[in-house]
Write a protein that binds this DNA or RNA. Structure first.
Lengths: 213, 213
DNA sequence: CAGCAGACACTACACCGGGCAGTTTCTGAG
DNA sequence: CTCAGAAACTGCCCGGTGTAGTGTCTGCTG
């Protein structure tokens, strides 16, 4: 078996998960072959099966690992841009641009998310829930906390932080995600900036300053 | 041969495209098998290949056909709900709910869109562009026109119809689409209504009435 | 009758998962 | 430090399965 325990050399295991993330992200679950993953990891296919029971187990494993990394990256971006913001508009805009550039566009992290979204109907409900919880939902919670703090400091009007976070994500992020098909196609930097700016603009009309309701 | 011309009996051809839409939508491009499509159509596999050169041709063909139908359905919804609206809020809300229920959630139409989004990296650029143009982009244009008309009638403030349509779609539609993974998972009717209502609420704070900017 | 559809077998290929024998790498005892 | 032994890895193999696409003959139908 050796699906989770400390079986095998950890270094090989890491190489395998990294390779699986790359290949699953590039090809999608069905197209990705275990041979390709083994080759990408510089490891014998037999070794892959020493570490992971089967293809599905490997996929779900890297999916969960990936969602945690993605949420972590989100927390970093939040800390970098919003925690000590003074000019809310420019801080939110910078955050939105970096988020849009980092999460779906570039390799690895967001690419695997695309594979997961494509395969969602074939993922066990409990694993999917765990993925949502440690990834997207955690990211949204972190964003909500941050916005609430900005509200407390009087820079935003945030009666419902969860709702505000949802709106911010929709307005500044989903436009880019949709346009790039979650990172499958490139989106010009200029376009990202335009969408983020326009999104922040809309967001601030609803939640900006202590004047709005 | 016989990829597009009027080869074969049109009735069989329709059965094949309908079956392909169903199976591709349910299984995705890679998992869907030509045998399954032939069976679903109640037709021999040989007949499928008499009408369509290969799997990819069949997929792209139904993709384009589907996007046109989707845009048409959108125009119907717009005409039904917004063309003669008097109470903007309730009209927009009703439209948003029906759109969210129709497009991604239910079968056929939106399901194939999910397959296309999953396969986007393997679709020829010109076909993808054509799909975008006849489907999502056309739908957005129709919505923009409608919002512009509401603006002309003084019910909304719409300086840039295209931008307004983009925001409306993001706020009232993408939340549901994301939550249901573009129709792969069911979303409770109540949840749809909540998201649509909250989205319209946000939209009206930006574009509502002649007072806003 | 002419062309299209049906049924069925068939080729060619890719892939998952595992078996096996030999080799490398780590560990721990002397 | 040396060296045996265990554990992990490698490379190649094979079996089973699923699938795209084709060949071919028979039969229906306009």
């Amino acid at each position: 078996m050796a699906t989770t325990g400390a079986a095998g050399r950890p270094e090989k295991r890491r190489a395998i998960t990294a390779a699986a993330t790359t290949v699953f992200g590039r090809e999608g679950y069905v197209r990705a072959s275990m041979d390709a993953i083994a080759a990408e990891a510089g490891v014998s296919k037999r070794t892959v099966y020493n570490h992971f029971a089967d293809k599905e187990t490997l996929f779900l494993s890297v999916a969960l690992q990936n969602s945690a990394e993605l949420a972590e990256r989100m927390r970093e971006l939040l800390a970098e841009h919003l925690e000590e913001a003074v000019d809310v508009r420019s801080a939110l805009t910078a955050f939105a641009v970096e988020r849009a550039n980092a999460a779906p566009a570039a390799g690895e992290l967001g690419a695997l998310g695309r594979a997961i979204r494509a395969e969602v109907a074939n993922i066990p409900a409990d694993v999917l829930e765990a993925w949502l919880e440690t990834g997207p939902a955690a990211a949204q919670r972190a964003l909500a906390q941050c916005l609430a703090e900005l509200g407390r400091r009087g820079l935003l009007t945030v009666p419902d932080p969860g709702l505000a976070a949802e709106r911010f994500t929709l307005l500044t992020f989903h436009g880019v995600a949709e346009r790039s098909f979650w990172g499958a196609l490139p989106v010009a930097e200029e376009e990202v900036r335009r969408l983020a700016g326009s999104g922040v603009d809309a967001f601030l009309r609803i939640h900006g300053g202590p004047a709005a309701g």
